[in-house]
């Protein structure tokens, strides 16, 4: 019944710090796109720390492999959701705050056009490859 176990508590503290800064970043950053930086990067490392600490706290092999799998899926899903949120917001026309310079994409709010172009590109790709799908 020791109060502080280094291997268990240090990673949890480390992770909690980054999750806390993620929350602060989400509140303080000026627009959705900047907030995604905080919520995607910081939460990934933060949860990695917390998972490691929890694995040490449970300290059996199954906990380590399970949490490794959970972390793997965290790494796979977080960037995906950030990508989809950013893209959906942008193509639906949520204006980004860009003090740093120009918007080199220049497709703000053009969801319909892009969807149309995507469908055409898919058709072309399918025709080019000359194979039927499925």
């Amino acid at each position: 019944m020791d109060d502080f176990r280094l291997a268990r508590d240090l990673p949890i503290l480390f992770g909690a710090f980054f999750v806390l800064t993620a929350a602060i970043g989400v509140v303080r950053f000026p627009d959705l796109y900047s907030r995604l930086h905080a919520s995607s990067k910081l939460v990934t490392l933060g949860s990695a720390g917390i998972f490691l600490g929890v694995a040490f706290a449970l300290s059996d092999a199954a906990a380590f492999t399970r949490l490794a799998a959970v972390l793997l899926f965290q790494f796979l899903t977080t960037p995906l959701s950030a990508y989809l949120i950013a893209q959906a917001a942008y193509l639906r026309g949520l204006p980004p705050i860009l003090t740093g310079g120009v918007d080199e994409w220049g497709a703000l709010g053009r969801a319909d056009e892009v969807a149309q172009a995507d469908r055409e590109a898919q058709r072309l790709l399918a025709a080019e490859s000359g194979e039927d799908e499925g």
């Binding site: 800064t21 950053f29 910081l42 490392l45 980004p96 120009v102 918007d103």
Partner: peptide, 20 residues
């Protein structure tokens, strides 16, 4: 990346300089 974003989140006047 994490240290950088954490610093930006905690600074009183972060220079975000957002761009696409």
């Amino acid at each position: 990346a994490n240290v950088q974003v954490a610093l930006l989140a905690l600074q009183s006047r972060p220079r975000l300089n957002p761009l696409i």
